[in-house]
């Protein structure tokens, strides 16, 4: 009696694919939805549960060594390809044909407010795309703070020569 029941229980599991289970994972196709994507965007007008925290994060945080360190790291990830480590704009992407970005050491950008850098990261500027989807608000402020630190550094006079594309 026990053997057939156990046998049935064992066989019942056969054919079920455990590797690709019947569920929607991020980035997968989903025939259930009209656009065929498992990942959903919230409907229009949705207010997120952490809306107050999100709004608070858009306020400029107090300057600190930790904020600058964070800014340095994030600048290295998202800004260096174009703006270069020294902020000159002689990055490797401009060397490959992207329009040369302005120098952070220029008088215009030294006079610009930190809010200006924050807004450019949020909305984009000229040919620069917005980074709002990649850099969260607090990190944007951190990068703005680090740009200030970069502007306070003295660079050699001959640095303005753009790097040649190779």
């Amino acid at each position: 009696m026990v053997v057939p029941i156990l046998g049935c229980a064992l066989v019942a599991g056969c054919g079920k694919n455990m590797v690709q289970q019947a569920r929607y994972d991020p980035y997968e196709k989903a025939p259930l939805f009209e656009d065929g994507m498992a990942m959903r965007a919230p409907p229009e007008g949705v207010v997120s549960r952490d809306a107050p925290q999100r709004r608070a994060a858009t306020q400029r945080p107090a300057m600190s060594a930790a904020l600058l360190a964070r800014g340095r790291e994030r600048y290295g990830i998202y800004c260096v390809p174009c703006h270069a480590r020294d902020g000159s704009g002689n990055g490797i992407v401009p060397a490959r044909g992207f329009p040369h970005p302005p120098d952070f050491h220029s008088e215009r950008l030294k006079a610009a407010s930190e809010r200006h850098f924050y807004d450019v990261m949020t909305q984009g500027y000229g040919v620069m795309y917005a980074y709002a989807d990649r850099v969260p608000p607090r990190d944007r402020w951190a990068i703005a703070a680090y740009i200030r630190a970069l502007q306070a550094t003295n660079l050699p006079e001959d640095r303005t020569e753009p790097r040649r594309g190779d």
């Binding site: 991020p26 980035y27 390809p81 992407v93 044909g97 992207f98 329009p99 040919v127 795309y129 989807d133």
Partner: peptide
């Protein structure tokens, strides 16, 4: 998830290059 970049990320450079 590490995240796959949206097309917007590709086009950040490839709108010009």
């Amino acid at each position: 998830r590490a995240g796959l970049p949206p097309t917007h990320t590709c086009m950040t450079c490839h709108s010009q290059v």
